[in-house]
Amino acid sequence: MIEVSHLTKHYPGRVAVDDVSFAVSPGEIVGFLGPNGAGKSTTMRILAGYLPATGGVVRVADHDVAEEPIEVRRRIGYLPENCPLYGEMRVDEYLRFRARLKGVPRAKVPARIVEVKERCGIADVGNRIIGQLSKGYRQRVGLAETLVHDPDLLILDEPTIGLDPNQIRLVRGLIAELAERHTILLSTHILSEVEMTCKRVLIIHKGRIVASDTPDRLRRRMTGEASVIAEIAGPRGEVEPALRGISGVADVQAEGGDAWVRYMLRAPRDEDPRPAIAALAAQRGWPLRELHREAATLEDIFVNLTQTDEAEAQP
């Protein structure tokens, strides 16, 4: 659906996107992740045909964005950052305008509007003035607009920014539903969002793609070690050396109060020291009240990949 090869975008005195290549196949839902100023919006604007690229080739649905911009735009529903809308228009009026603008045949417009309003949960605000709607509703109007010509591909730039947690969940749910029928590329710097909604993640940093994989595999790749947490009541001086003695345990850190002490152990992924810890505690008669293994979060990965020269990233 999307093929990007060696895409470069220069702004005066700055390289915003630097030799980026990736592909998205039909039906995929891909998260575009990166810190502020990484070049997400710039890439998406080029994909949507708003900005011309400095170098490289972008193809969407087998059409070159630079050579056949109109063909490409027919197939894309693009929601820009901050969801710009005409505040003085009514919802229905806006959707009608956009549908006509996007070439939906006149006879089909009313049915399309009803359908997208239904899908985005805004059926009851058709007569309201957009500027007077809440942010969450405006966001949904924006989403409805991207769907109005039934595009194959949705490009959504930070679709949940600025919403309260309830609205974020609603919009995410909506996106997950849309994923059944459309290919989606969405950008965000909220990691949990990607973990929840996307099958694949592209991490972009300073204009370059630094990782592209499923959230799961990224997590596994990044963490050769897992950490195990155990809370044990017992003399710290005895417990700590005993834990160190368990095979596979590389490092032990203790933390916490008088009775209960929280131990954080590092161990290789393929070795699980938990049975040995339980057995040890039972054998010595130390009460054990918590024992679990923590997987690295996408957040760790993200920080790991993008924290280099943080100061330079946002000039």
Partner: peptide, 14 residues
């Protein structure tokens, strides 16, 4: 100013 230029210019019109 409002950013709608971006939605306008990415619609299939020249």
């Amino acid at each position: 100013r409002s950013g709608t230029i971006e939605t306008l210019m990415t619609a299939p019109v020249t």
